[in-house]
Each structure stands twice: as structure tokens, then as C-alpha cells.
Nucleic acid binder design. Sequence first.
DNA 1: ATTACTAAGAAGCGAGTAG
DNA 2: TCTACTCGCTTCTTAGTAA
Lengths: 242, 242
Amino acid sequence: MNTSENISPENYANWFALYKLCQLAKERKYIEISSVEFGEILGLSQQTGSRRINDLEQLGWIKRKIDGKSQKISITKEGATIMLSIYRELRNLLESILIIGEVTEGIHEGGYYVSIRGYFQQFKERLGFEPYKGTLNLRLSDTDNEILREKLKNITPIIIEGFKDLNREYGPVKCYDVYISRMDDEKNKHKAAILDIQRTHHKENIIEILAKPYLRDYFNLKDGDKLIIDISKDKQSVSSLS
Amino acid sequence: MNTSENISPENYANWFALYKLCQLAKERKYIEISSVEFGEILGLSQQTGSRRINDLEQLGWIKRKIDGKSQKISITKEGATIMLSIYRELRNLLESILIIGEVTEGIHEGGYYVSIRGYFQQFKERLGFEPYKGTLNLRLSDTDNEILREKLKNITPIIIEGFKDLNREYGPVKCYDVYISRMDDEKNKHKAAILDIQRTHHKENIIEILAKPYLRDYFNLKDGDKLIIDISKDKQSVSSLS
DNA sequence: ATTACTAAGAAGCGAGTAG
DNA sequence: TCTACTCGCTTCTTAGTAA
């Protein structure tokens, strides 16, 4: 089943009606609603409310029993499939228009950096949080990586200064403020930072994320899970427009 | 931000237009499209294509650069947020209108049953597949459990007959054909069976799933992950209508 | 080529009302 | 009360065309 066939100009009014009915179905069993009430929910008249319910029934997206005064509505398997396919299509689209990183087992180099005393103190002061002594490694697609790098160019990084100790010299490190979140959970949008280490040894598009909590636990992650990386410059476009 | 405010009757035409633009954005960088082409994609005229793009720009959902002949369009953060919030809202709705089970560590009783020789041979023959010798335990919400039980009543179960051996007597077991899938992956819809063991010791709404592969690996699951349980009687409604 | 204006035409909505 | 019909009116779309 092709999603584009399901929502097309002729019936996105119906799709919206189904969406609203599903919201009502949250409270479950079946939906008992009059055309007046449904019209109000749609922000339209009783007549249109009635028409929409008719149309949805015709489309086979809902079933109903009219019982004199009241009508009982339920979502059919077809209706649910429509919703599910739109959901899935949206998920695919979002993976294209957002920068998504895939949790991966890293080489813990970032973690090593964080632990170094001379850096750690600076991270604490300049990032605005005391970072967990380890990084979360996220693998980006080529395109996402490209876009991310381009975006980062337009952002002034937080500079962690280099220093020397008895043994060796430590170079400066750049960080970038970001927000990290799961695709399916809007409440947990966590402040974090991209740790920009110039790396020679993995060509792969892996970025390292610093945050106060241990992110794998905080977001309940396993390898392969996907996170949204949000470089919150509000008015910016998400797909790059050079 | 409230999703219901984002898609309302006045602007779902715009929402749909944004959705279509995002599909185009899949191919990335920026979208370079004429109003004629966009009209065609919408199934509408050039004029409307042009108007939609204008409207979307007005809403701040897209940015564009008109460059003589061609215009380059990109999705703004606001636009992406709209899409993301609809995605999330849909996810919530789907969790209400579909039967969703949460992966949980079971007591492995089902697994014990499967392994028993007298049962195993029957499972193999009657389910149409050779089950993995263990079950996946899914916890249901009270409502989902109620609805599932009600649905199962209307389905003729696969009966696995009881038998005796030297030590004890084994009772009959009922199974129900289902399809199991992740919410985010339409390709992997796997044939499985609910193993209906009358259980006294967990009051919790846990069902046990039989399938050929080890489902935790097959779907890459961890505890708490959610699966759709699809009792595929096609013309049936998903929300119960008695 | 494009985008986008205006005016005519089509589609959709709601008032009135029947069943 | 309900749902849902017809019909007038409003809104949106398209044709023609300018920039």
C-alpha cells in the first residue's frame, strides 16, 4: 500500500477526520459521538461532521452502528493501516529532514579526553554542565554528516583550550551546543555538546556527544537506536540551503 | 506546541503540501522545484502549487530563494517541528488504536511448554512453522488486554492436544495466529502465534508469543520495546465495537 | 522559462428542513 | 432528539495573462 495514494488532495479532509476520530478513540472501546459534536471537533458544522463520517465509512476506514439517537464508531483495520502507513512514511521523511545519529559502540577516545583533568574543568565551566566521563558515539549518514559540518561552520564553537603537563602537550578542542532527543519522546530533549576531535583514524561519520548524564541509560539506548541531533539555531532551515 | 493547532481544517492543505515537500527533500540538499512541477505532485494546478509554496513560506515552514528561473526550497526548523509533532502525535494515537505489547523478561514457562516433545511436534504441524524453543513475553495494557481477549473469542484457536507420559498429564493448549511487527518497520511483519496458557500466577497482562526465529534477535529488541500484535481478520475493526 | 495576479468556474460548506 | 438531504452561498481552484 502506497501512502501517497492514501492521502491525496481529494481526501486529506477525510484523513484529518480520521485523525481526529483516532484522538477520540484514545479513551476507547468505541467512539460514541454525534455529528454535531464531531463537527465541532473539526471546527465545522454538523452537516460536514455528518458528511465526513459518511465518507470515512464509505472509504472503509471506520465502521459504525447507528442506534436511533446515537452512533457508535470504531476504526477498522484499513483505517488503522492508513494511520500506520502515514506514521511510517513520516518517520522515513523525518530521517531525511532531521539530522539523525545512530548509537554505536565507540572507541572511547572522547571519553579519554573528558577525563583529563585539564580539559574536564574547562568542560564544566564552558558547557554549563559537568559532563559524564565518557561520550556517546553517533554514526551519521554521509549526507547528514555533510549537512552537520556545514551547519557547524556557521556556529561559533565553545573553545576548550589546550595545555601542557609534564608528559605531553594537549591541543585545543572545539565543542558545539546541541540538543539530543529520541524521535518518539518529546519530553526528553537533553542539552548536550558535540565534541569535535579532529580524527584521522575513523573515516566513518562518527560524532561524539557529551552530556551530564550517561546518555545510554538516560534514553535507554542500544546500538542502532536513532537520536535527533538538534543544533538549535531557531530560524535556521533544517535542510541546508547553503 | 500543540499538534491540534498545527493541523486544523484551515491548513491541512498546507500540511499536505509540506508533507509532499518533505518527500522531495529526501533526495536532499535543497529542493529545486517549479510551481508547475509542484502543482503536478499535489495533483493540482500550477497556480495552486505556487500558492501553496507562498503559504508555506508565510507560515515559516519553508524558506526559499527565488533565483530567476528556479527556486530553491528548504524546510525550516519550524516546518520540521510540525512534521515531528505530527509524527509523535500519530505514534501516541497508534498506541491507542492498535494492540501494542511491551517486550518483557518472562518466566519462561511458555518456553518450557514448547520444548516438551509431545507439544513440539504438534506446534510444528499445526502452526505451520517450527517454533523457536522459547517464547517472547509481551506485556499489554489493561485495555489492550481486554480488547485482545475479546477478539480472541471470535477466532477459532489452533488446538494443541493434551497427552500423557509416564510422569504426568499435559493439558490441551490453545494458540492463535498473529502477525508481529515493530511500529517503525513495515517490511518485517512476522507470522507468529499467541500461546494461550491459562495462568494463575501472573495477574499481569502478559502474553507469550511463538515464532520460528528468536524474536529478540529478529526484531533487535530490548525490554520495553513495543510491538504491534496484529490479529489479521481483515475486515475487523481495531477498536472493539462489541 | 519562470511566478503570481485577477476573474471566472468548481467544489465544499452550512442553513433549512425532512425522515 | 438524532442523521443527512437540498440548495444557496462562500471559499478555493483554475484559466488567462502580466511581469
